[in-house]
């Protein structure tokens, strides 16, 4: 999370009702988000400076891997755009051994409402990623994922900012785990819309991927 003080507390409280361990990676927030997260019952791992979402994701994964009893990692955005029910169902599918990684997709059902332009960009990104990696994924830029420790220990994200989503898919394509998609709803509140990435950011993503 980065400066999410207004929402992170309720997001973590929601998660804590279902998940015993919630790790919140703070990406150098300056608005007191850390205290809110701690008060809500999360373990806060705090970057000393702001590095970006990809860096935070990798930090969270490496932190969780220290636990020898780890069964499943779920990545969940701090801004409240995901649903805890979806996360629960995905974690169950990983724990049952059905797949090693379950990726959330907002395009598998019609719960998520999004603009035509955003739909087009995300669909294009998904097609590009399918052609490049051969992985049949419908929503490459969905932050809700659940995976087991073997997959987790093979993820090494180096793209600090937004291009990490494509980087992750590339690494999965090489690792070839058993994977599946799970229909999830993205809740676009006014808050997440104001914080979320603008469509123009897709230009940055492509540029970051091109100039490794």
């Amino acid at each position: 999370m980065y400066n999410e003080a207004t929402v992170v507390g309720s997001v973590i409280e929601g998660l804590r009702k279902q998940f015993p361990h919630v790790v919140c990676v703070d990406d150098g927030s300056t608005d007191g988000s850390q205290e809110k997260a701690r008060a809500a019952g999360a373990v806060v791992v705090q970057h000393p400076i702001n590095l970006g979402q990809g860096a935070a994701l990798q930090t969270g994964i490496e932190f969780a891997l220290q636990d020898p009893e780890l069964e499943c990692i779920v990545t969940f955005d701090a801004d409240g755009q995901h649903r805890v029910d979806d996360a629960m169902a995905m974690a169950e599918r990983v724990k049952s051994g059905e797949a090693e990684i379950i990726l959330g997709s907002r395009f598998l059902d019609d719960r998520t409402k999004l603009s035509a332009a955003k739909r087009l960009v995300l669909k294009t990104a998904a097609i590009q990623s399918r052609l490049a990696t051969g992985m049949n994924l419908t929503d490459a830029h969905n932050g809700l994922r659940a995976f087991n420790p073997r997959v987790a220990s093979n993820i090494h994200l180096t793209q600090n900012r937004m291009a990490h989503a494509s980087e992750l898919v590339n690494q999965l394509a090489r690792l070839k785990p058993k994977y599946a998609e799970h229909p999830v709803e993205i809740i676009y509140t006014d808050y997440s819309k104001s914080k979320g990435q603008s469509l123009l950011n897709s230009v940055n993503i492509v540029a970051e991927l091109f100039f490794k």
Binding site: V23, V43, V44, V45, Q58, T59, Q66
Partner: peptide, 11 residues
């Protein structure tokens, strides 16, 4: 990352 993980309590 090293600083962040070292500072936090171990899972």
């Amino acid at each position: 990352r090293r600083i962040a993980i070292d500072e936090a309590e171990k899972p």
